[in-house]
Simulated assay, not measured.
Amino acid sequence: MGYGIGAAITWAFDTVILSIALSCSAFFETEQAIALASLTSTFLHDGASAVFAFIFMAVRGKLKQTKDLLVSKYGKYIVIAAVIGAPLGMTGYVTSIANIGPAYTAAITAFFPAYGAALAHFVLKEPMRGYNWAGLIVCLVAVAVLGWSPAEGIPGNWIVGIIGCLICVVGWGTEAVIIAWGLKSAQVDDQCAMQIRQTTSAITYALVIMPIVGGWGCSIDAFLSDAMPWIALAALSGTASYLLYYKAIAVIGAAKSMALNITYSAWAIPFSLVFLGTMPDARGIICAIVIIVGAIVAATDVKALFTKGDTSGTELEHLEQPL
Rank of each mutant, 00 (worst) to 15 (best):
Y3T: 10
A7V: 04
T10P: 01
A12T: 01
A12M: 01
A12R: 00
F27M: 05
E29D: 12
L39F: 09
S49R: 01
F52A: 09
I55S: 09
V59F: 15
R60Q: 14
R60M: 11
R60V: 05
L63S: 05
K64Y: 12
Q65A: 13
G75K: 03
V79D: 05
V83D: 08
S96Q: 07
N99G: 06
G101T: 04
I108L: 11
F111T: 07
A118R: 03
V123R: 01
E126V: 05
W133Q: 10
L136G: 03
I137H: 04
I137F: 07
V138E: 07
L140K: 07
P155D: 11
I159C: 08
V160P: 04
G173R: 00
G173D: 10
G173Y: 03
T174V: 15
I178T: 13
I179G: 01
G182K: 09
D189C: 05
Q195D: 15
T200N: 08
I203T: 10
Y205Q: 06
I209R: 01
M210T: 06
I212N: 05
I220D: 11
D221Q: 12
A222F: 02
F223N: 05
L224I: 15
D226W: 13
A227S: 10
A227T: 11
A234C: 07
A234Q: 06
A240Y: 03
A240H: 01
S241P: 05
L243F: 12
L243K: 00
L243W: 10
L244V: 05
A248C: 07
I252D: 12
A255V: 07
S257P: 11
S257C: 06
V274F: 05
F275Q: 02
L276I: 05
P280F: 07
D281K: 11
R283H: 09
I285T: 08
I285L: 01
C287W: 06
V290G: 12
A304H: 03
T307R: 00
E317A: 08
H318F: 15
Q321R: 08
